[in-house]
Design a protein around this nucleic acid. Structure first.
Lengths: 250, 250
DNA sequence: GAGTGGTCTAGACCACATG
DNA sequence: ATGTGGTCTAGACCACTCT
């Protein structure tokens, strides 16, 4: 019915959430056949295109599988939820693992940019916000991180003493919400510094993640370097197969 | 024009490839405004919905950015091509890094399943194909891997001596092409075995990747365990921001 | 106000799955 | 033969950007 869009969300999004709720909360064991697209279209009073968009979201999230000529079904196994491709928050990631998440800010200062900041497109001498933190799971240090944000992206009246615990929230409030990122992963031995911060033996393998976050316009907004204690929790990612040369669409 | 589809590809896919070719091969520097959707629709004789689907593919691949109310533009920076989320082939990954890629099959046998195969949904006693390989870059070992595929998914006349170098190609030829995967990453010290295979000092940090590949129906088709020498090349991934709770669609 | 992308509709034909 | 998802069309209104 409603065409352009009420103030709230997309029609397809609301329908997707509705269907997801029906699948999870209610019952519907894996393998259950869902109503046909035509049926849903009629029942919810939306076009079939909208139904398809809603179901597509569930398929991409791994809740539903579609079989051409047959129907749509509740997926057998839900894919892992918290992966590098789906969340930008370690807080939720740690809590999901069943641990008490904590964070300590060791340092937060404005300083001159160095050459590691080149990916942030800062000019020499430009200031960056440098934040040094340790995340804990059940009070055990699990991630030591150094984040850098170009000062020009931030408000000038920023209170370093009462820094927003989420740098993503900080960026969002400044109109530079993180939209996507590229991360590089490597296994490295812990150094004197990282071993002390994470309370591990020196030389112990750490998962090192170097990540650059971009806003919607493709402007690099943050450089994060993180050292993870691998025993603490696993980093998960989801891959998709590709079409040769040009990338897939669906 | 053509409605249902000739034998070949999707209309939107062909249009996407066409546009991509125009962007890359021809000229069009970053920031260039693309024709409007209506314009493209008219020029190629397809509906605007199809144009949107085509451009959507380019946006997802990072070639194009769309600005509501303004237009579509050639993206500033192409995102990294070879990442865990975009390719399932290490061969191309190594070659892209500018090295000569090689591979040695150490072992390929059918054996009884063990409890590590539980993610593959094999019953106790069922056979699995176990392949042990080493990948090299410029003749230096860089990845040691152990892959396992349920035997029931494969042809029975499989020639283990002349195994297809690509297990993905093998799976595809058996009607179980890998469609998506979940991978877990960890930093681990090299063991006696992995240190020998990769010719590194024992205890040296390795990037350990445990991956389960699924076909389009969600059937797990392969379990891969890989140990990467981190100096060799970096593993890159691309992340996307998420909508709280229910996953994004677009 | 004109133009553009974002969303939605109603209806159509096709290819595949199932009985 | 029938039903289902997969693709496509033509046209509409909306929200936003730009001038």
């Amino acid at each position: 019915m409603a065409r352009g869009m009420p103030g709230e969300t997309l029609l397809a999004d609301r329908l997707r959430d509705q269907l997801l709720e029906d699948i999870t909360n209610s019952q519907l064991p894996p393998g259950t056949k869902l109503p046909t697209e035509g049926e849903l279209s009629k029942r919810f009073g939306v076009s079939r295109a909208t139904v398809r968009e809603a179901v597509r979201g569930l398929v991409e999230a791994g809740y539903v599988t579609r079989r051409r000529g047959s129907g749509s079904y509740v997926a057998e196994r839900r894919r892992m939820p918290h992966g590098l491709d789906s969340t930008l928050s370690y807080l939720a990631m740690i809590e999901n693992a069943g641990a008490k998440a904590g964070m300590r800010v060791l340092d937060a200062v404005f300083e001159e940019s160095t050459n590691i900041d080149s990916v942030l497109h800062v000019r020499p001498g430009e200031k960056v916000l440098a934040v040094e933190r340790v995340r804990t799971a059940d009070d055990q240090p699990v991630i030591y991180s150094r984040d850098r944000i170009p000062a020009r992206l931030l408000r000038h009246d920023l209170d370093l003493a009462n820094l927003d615990p989420s740098l993503f929230a900080l960026l969002r409030s400044c109109g530079h919400a993180a939209d996507h990122a590229t991360a590089t992963l490597r296994a490295v031995p812990s150094t004197i510094c990282t071993a002390k911060m994470l309370r591990v033996r020196r030389g112990k393998p750490l998962l090192y993640i170097e990540e650059v976050d971009y806003d919607r316009d493709g402007t690099p907004v943050m450089l994060s370097r993180e050292w993870h204690v691998s025993e603490a929790f696993d980093v998960r990612i989801n891959r998709r197969a590709q079409v040769p040369q040009a990338p897939r669409m669906r």
